[in-house]
Design a binder for these strands. Structure first.
Length: 425
RNA sequence: GGAGAGGUGGCGGAGUGGUCUAUCGCGCUUGUCUUGAAAACAAGAGUCCUGAAAGGGACCAGGGGUUCGAAUCCCCUCCUCUCCUCCA
């Protein structure tokens, strides 16, 4: 959601931002049309209400003075207004609903600093850490490494649930569990995030707050009772403060939580479908920050660094790219992707996406703060990023640390969590 | 799932359908007093929308209804608490 006042007073600026993302800016004109109709009708409505309220008050006084005839006359006047009100109210409500719907469909504007571009091929590389590991023989892809060690079972996952659902087994299950335990410890103890363990199902209002609804309904698993399985812990964690006014002194608030993530769309594009690169359920640590507007770009830099520090600790080669206007999507203002090198697949795979939403989510979720007591409320800026997603990291570990004999050396930092130095058959 | 009791401002807690403001207390802000603080006294203070402003409107969990007028009466939904049932 954008500031209504900004759309009203600087429509060209808003149009330009939407067009930079390659999106349709006619929504601006639609908004302006409905907004002005709504505001003028609202004036009309409020004049009627004020008049009715005024007359109603005099009725009480007249009754008290036993001026029954005058009271009855006033009653008739008030009733005439009250009879006319519902029709105006209904029109007003209809316009208001239209306006709200349009408002929720608005994309966020890109930050002025982000590079123009058409798609992912135009994303500049910001930095590279480490080097590609070298192998005596051609490195195997993680699904081949895993097969030799019986780490996960895609066939049986498909049997018990469906295609794109994975069962981790034995040492593979242990590595999986070790990875998210290691990462939540890393982000909370080393990087100073406050730990959250959220529900995995949320209500509709929460998904509207983060911007997943109403637009991306088809990407979500819906349960009975109108609850949705979360696509990321971003949803419950961001919504912790929905409809709240935060104390400015408490900012920046840094939260990190573990959750399962459930995505219907995964695999539907027919891309990256092998192994565990794209699956319907995966585990992830998510970091969320709530901060003052003037701090959010500095917080974005430390957020991506916090995500990177996981890969550094594990000794995995990676690069950071910045998403261009054509690839950033509707919700973000600026976004970095963290991509780990996957030697067997032979590509860099996204393990984290760190985004500054500025006030976009805060407006939707109504999360505000006061700089000090008595100060006016302002919207916070909200950022989030994975810290990290497990499956692709899992794959990168298998591929990067595979040995000629088929075993996999466990990185030092992970050993206390796995309880093994290497995975063997 | 069943029975009962509830949901009012930052918190606690009143509120016979109307008469100028949703009592009051705590907490909060400012002022008086004080070297400073406390105490006392006085004043102030909610959120949102709309409007250039003056002003107007909405909000007592949410949504409907009755009425000239609803925190108050009626209906539905959600949530909390107690007890029962079930369950890990």
């Amino acid at each position: 959601m954008l500031d209504r006042e900004l759309i009203r007073t600087q429509p060209d600026f808003v149009r330009h931002g939407i067009q930079r993302k390659g999106l349709d800016s006619s929504i601006v004109d639609e908004f302006l049309r409905v907004d002005s109709a709504w505001r003028s009708l609202r004036q009309e409505l409020e004049v009627m209400q004020a008049e009715r309220n005024r007359i109603s008050k005099t009725i009480g006084q007249l009754m008290g003075q036993k001026k029954i005839d005058e009271a009855n006359e006033a009653k008739a006047q008030a009733k005439a207004i009250s009879d006319a009100l519902p029709e105006v109210e209904a029109r007003n409500r209809a316009l208001e609903e239209d306006l709200n719907k349009i408002e929720l469909d608005f994309p966020n504007l890109p930050h002025e600093s982000i590079p123009d571009g058409k798609d992912e091929n135009d994303n500049p590389v910001v930095r590279v850490w480490g080097e590609k590991p070298t192998f005596a023989e051609e490195p195997k892809a993680h699904w081949d490494v895993a097969e030799g060690l019986n780490l996960f079972d895609l066939a049986r996952g498909a049997k018990i649930t469906g295609s794109g659902w994975v069962v981790y087994t034995g040492q593979g299950a242990r590595l999986q569990r070790a990875l998210f335990n290691f990462m939540i410890d890393h982000q909370t103890r080393k990087n100073g995030y406050f730990e959250i363990y959220p529900p995995f199902l949320v209500n509709r209002a929460s998904l509207i707050g983060t911007g997943n609804l109403p637009k991306f309904e088809e990407d979500l698993y819906k349960s009975t009772d109108d609850l949705y399985l979360i696509p990321t812990a971003e949803v419950p964690i961001t919504n912790l403060y929905r409809d709240e006014i935060l104390n400015g002194e408490d900012l920046t608030i840094k939260l990190a939580g573990f959750s399962g993530c459930f995505r219907r769309e995964a695999g539907s594009a027919g891309k990256d479908t092998r192994g565990i690169q794209r699956i319907h359920q995966f585990d992830k640590i998510e970091m969320v920050k709530f901060c003052k507007p003037e701090d959010s770009y500095a917080e974005l830099e430390t957020l991506i660094q916090d995500a990177e520090s996981v890969l550094q600790t594990l000794g995995l080669h990676y690069r950071v790219i910045e998403l261009c206007t054509g690839d950033i999507g509707a919700k973000g203002a600026k976004c970095y992707d963290l991509e780990v090198w996957s030697p067997g697949v032979g590509r860099y795979l996204e393990v984290s996406s760190c985004t500054n939403f500025e006030a976009y989510q805060a407006r939707r979720a109504n999360i505000r703060f006061r700089r000090e007591q008595g100060a006016p409320t302002e919207f916070v800026h909200i950022l989030n990023g994975s810290g990290l997603a497990v499956p692709r990291l899992y794959g990168a570990i298998l591929e990067s640390f595979q040995q000629p004999d088929g075993s996999v050396i466990i990185p030092e930092a992970l050993r206390p969590y796995v309880g093994l130095n290497k995975l063997t058959s």
